[in-house]
Nucleic acid binder design. Structure first.
Lengths: 213, 213
DNA sequence: GTCTATAATGGGATAGAC
DNA sequence: GTCTATCCCATTATAGAC
């Protein structure tokens, strides 16, 4: 907007290149050199625009979180006003907010989920800290909804099963491209990201609702 | 055995230090310098004994796989001779083989699962290739057992849900220490790895057996 | 804001003495 | 088998010209 030149903003070019590479290879295995050459910008521009690699990672994540989290939160709050809810509805709250991430780019939904997984696994926790501190209330509403939909579960069971679902989703999405390729060649099943999300929800809902033993 | 000196074999010291660090931080984020100083051996000894870091990674993984895989395979084969089986039984096949990994060290079971997750997520696939090529038949029997226990699922559904379970387990175990700490402080729940495995199995069995939609 | 050049660090691997 | 010393490469980050 405020830019005069016709070429895309350097900052955006960096973000767009970085998120794809981070999602594919993880944060630590993606060098600034790789990012800047993919983005076709100068190496030094990352530090100029973002300050450090760590801050670039936060910027990449927050571009998605800032869209996804408020909408997921709104859907969860809305659901919580219902008198009775089930687990399938709880997970459905995340579908539309996830799919809206195409406003950032076409593959936004899968990139976001991959980044989320990387953030959990790669790092020493600074990203986890960042997410919990900025979007902790969404997690809180998610937990409330689960408890309302599955009142038989203890607090500890809810805690564990939320992490089980996180693992399922994040791991699946981290290799979703490869898996969808296999599904296409082996089973002649052409599935997009939304299809995959809708495929995983019955698994999650059933798993979370299982009888503890 | 063939060693004269009273001190532990350098090769074993390296393996024991490396697997813990690999499990905690991933393969690429663990330097040989860190490993050798933790193992209290010389930096050059890794290359002397293993040839390269990549070969050290394979050696670390295979020490566990060589014990785990044949036993899991035997349990699955045995189960497949039964006339009727359920999903819970299928997953139970892995519990005893996993717990026997304490023969390597006390925390063997969780280290193994963490390493497995790292192998799937960290790397460009050389480890995945190694596992599939060396232990592919175990995966085959696993698939057969799932199909027998849940005949309503299509081939594609089985494929997807196996990856869902892999994600659940691997992701949970990759952060199992942190999660168990939280469970202890927040819910006063003191749980060991076997307890966690037994906690995840109902989730997996229920998820895999859910009605596709 | 963009670039080149370079500093400072840490990585894997190896040569060669012992 | 073990150790020191070192090579060579890649990394993040920055200084300073334009």
């Amino acid at each position: 907007m405020s830019k005069a030149a016709g070429k895309k903003d350097t900052k955006q070019k960096i973000l767009n290149a970085a998120e794809v590479l981070f999602a594919e290879q993880g944060f630590n295995d993606t060098s600034l050199r790789l990012i800047t050459s993919a983005a076709d910008v100068n190496l030094a521009s990352v530090n100029y625009h973002f300050g450090s690699k760590k801050d670039l990672i936060k910027a990449v994540m927050d571009r998605y979180l800032a869209i996804f989290m408020p909408r997921a939160d709104a859907a969860l709050r809305q659901l919580l006003t219902e008198p009775a809810i089930n687990l399938h509805q709880v997970f459905d709250c995340f579908v539309a907010p996830l799919m809206e991430l195409t406003v950032i780019k076409r593959r936004g939904p899968e990139i976001f989920l991959q980044l989320l997984g990387r953030g959990y696994i790669d790092n020493q926790g600074f990203l986890r800290w960042f997410i919990v501190n900025h979007y902790g209330e969404v997690l809180e509403h998610f937990t409330q909804a689960i408890r309302k939909a599955a009142p038989a579960l203890s607090s500890a069971d809810v805690f564990w099963r939320l992490h089980f679902t996180l693992g399922t989703v994040v791991f699946t999405m981290a290799s979703s491209e490869a898996l969808r390729d296999i599904a296409k060649t082996d089973f002649d099943e052409d599935i997009d990201v939304e299809g995959l999300v809708r495929k995983v929800i019955p698994y999650l809902a059933s798993g979370v609702g299982a009888n503890p033993c």
